[in-house]
Amino acid sequence: MGNRLSSKLLGEGKGGIQGMSEIYTRMIIDLYRNPLNYGEIEKPDIKAKDTNPICGDIIEIQIKLNKDIIKDVKFNGKGCAISMASASLLTEMIKGKSIDESLKMDKNDILDALGIKMSLVRLKCALLPLRTLKMGIYSYLGKSDKV
């Protein structure tokens, strides 16, 4: 046991804490502490909230449109480092895009932006913001008779 621990602390282990930096990169931890586009928008055109029932994580995305273009986007809520970082990156990516373009985004766009691989359970955390965004856009399109 002692050997296992000391080898890990010295950084000789394959997985373990050293390996953790593969998932918990500096970028992800920074975005967890200092998220981008965190907050609220006055009178948003699109507003959607969703939760991850496994962990109770909650995320709300608010969007201000200029015709079909996302003029401004903010998110708020509580979640793990992966879901918070994912929300920061997603909101950055869709700013200035059309809502149609935003709807075309998928899992791979999020994973590429995060730059990490993860287990199925954690994938749910990573994809929560995208799911919430799409829910909001579809609900907006439904209401404004655009589909």
């Binding site: 890990k8 373990g16 804490i17 953790m20 998932i23 962990c55 793990c80 992966i82």
Partner: peptide
């Protein structure tokens, strides 16, 4: 300020199973 899920994920990589959540 760590989220318990991040904590559990990191410990899982250490071969330690704990629970995180509600």
């Amino acid at each position: 300020d760590m989220h318990p899920h991040d904590l559990a994920s990191i410990l899982d990589n250490e071969g330690i199973s704990i629970r995180a959540g509600h």
